[in-house]
Nucleic acid binder design. Sequence first.
DNA 1: AAACAATTCAACCGCAAGGCG
DNA 2: GCGCCTTGCGGTTGAATTGTT
Length: 258
Amino acid sequence: MGRSPCCDRAHTNKGAWTKEEDQRLIAYIRAHGEGCWRSLPKAAGLLRCGKSCRLRWINYLRPDLKRGNFTEKEDELIIKLHGLLGNKWSLIAGQLPGRTDNEIKNYWNTHIRRKLISRGLDPNTHRPLTIDTQLNTSTQPQLATMTTEVASKPVTDMIEDEHSSGISTTEDRCLDLNLDLSISLPNTSSKPSTSSEVLMPPTAAEARTPTSVPPYTQTICLCYHLGFQSSEACSCQANSNPYFLRFYRPLEEGQHME
DNA sequence: AAACAATTCAACCGCAAGGCG
DNA sequence: GCGCCTTGCGGTTGAATTGTT
């Protein structure tokens, strides 16, 4: 019973890759390109399962991988993105050229978690530890906010809020964005929030009666929301409908964030 | 120098999503 | 619509490395 194994375990190697295996894999992908991982091992003469080959290539052998320590900028970007996306490592990696999801996940667990804790923030919720323990709450943060059909307020308002409130630190920003609002209908108020103001989810009545936002899906440009200029980090632009922004695309090779 | 503890990170595992017949 | 297959993702493991006693 149960699922069949992804490969014939009796005839596959496991554990660390040898140099020879690496060379075979690199040579094969250079000649034939990526793809069809299931059949690749046999074709390349490797006693590995396809999954293992894919992982080895993506996380270690790919020529465009950036090696070395994470920079302070990368740290902060990961923190911001994690605050918005949660443990969506592949999405986070998509914003960090040359970094892999596995690398970022490991880095998060070994370095950034501690960094946030030392700042007095809960690494799961990005909220102050003390408040979090009193109010809390879910540990799965903010992706729902970004991908649910309706955000709490128009993106333009949120950006405006951020800029006008003079937020400068990541901690402030995390608080001010009310990142765990999750599923809610538009907040009709355009009153800018301040960093000292406690943002509350809309009441049930408010949630049922959107007044200023049309009832179609609202999609958010993540790059823009993070404060990047659209021409720098992505190609997102507002279309004719002010409530409908295209979702982000990953950075191109050589693009910069600042 | 040796033993032990802590940390790092490559690799594995199981599951879910998506494509296809 | 259904089932099978492949791929990709996130959580976890464990060997290797580094630090401490």
